[in-house]
Amino acid sequence: MDRAAADTPYARLAALGLALPKAPPPIANFVTHVREGDLLFLSGQGPREADGHLHAGKVGADVSVEEAYAHARLAGLNLIAVMHAALGDLGRVRRVVKLLGMVNGTPDFADHPQVINGCSDLFVAVFGEAGRHARSAVGFGSLPGNITVEIEAIVAVRD
């Protein structure tokens, strides 16, 4: 494999030992993404495994920071799957602009940034400098299905 072929988001995913899953379907009356101009708005994704299993529980009680980090990474992989489905080629991602990371934490949980780093670290590993983004990481009293994390993104794309 030549250097150019080895330096694609797909090659980086493979080097991380990750297989791109099918984009998860919406769980309610919304779409997984909307493109407006050169921006792609991605609906929130949770920690859904390829077999459909969702990771649930309260971070800080039932789920450790390390486990929730892995769940945020999985949510990030699902966001990448939606990007692929929407664009047909991850090479069209010009920049990850913004993430909103929501953590289903206990009232006294305070490590939201460390949890959402699971997604942020994955985006930088897969997209390089184009994966660096602005971000909010916040706590919620609950999330749909009691999932541990939900993350949405805004991505700049090229034609």
Rank of each mutant, 00 (worst) to 15 (best):
R132D: 12
E129I: 06
T8K: 08
C119T: 12
P25H: 09
E129H: 05
V138N: 04
V138P: 02
V157D: 09
R12F: 12
E152L: 10
L122Q: 08
A11M: 06
E129V: 10
A110H: 13
L18D: 12
G105F: 07
L20M: 14
M83H: 05
L18V: 09
M1R: 00
A137H: 13
V31M: 06
G37K: 02
T106P: 06
A70L: 15
A14H: 04
N146G: 08
A6E: 15
Q114F: 03
A68E: 12
A86N: 04
E49R: 13
V34I: 15
L13R: 14
C119D: 04
D2L: 06
D62P: 04
G57F: 11
G76S: 05
A86D: 10
I116C: 12
A15T: 05
L39R: 13
A19P: 02
T106I: 08
P107M: 09
H33C: 09
L90A: 12
P47K: 06
H112Y: 11
F140K: 08
D62V: 10
A85W: 05
L42N: 00
G52I: 06
A85C: 09
H53N: 06
G118H: 05
D2S: 14
F140D: 00
H55N: 13
T8A: 10
P21Y: 14
K22L: 14
V63S: 03
P25I: 00
D121W: 00
R95N: 13
V126N: 11
A6V: 02
R132Q: 15
P25A: 15
L39K: 07
P113T: 06
E66R: 15
D7E: 15
A11C: 10
G60C: 10
A130C: 01
E36H: 04
D38L: 09
R94M: 04
Y10F: 07
A70P: 00
Q114P: 00
L122D: 14
L54Y: 04
Q114W: 01
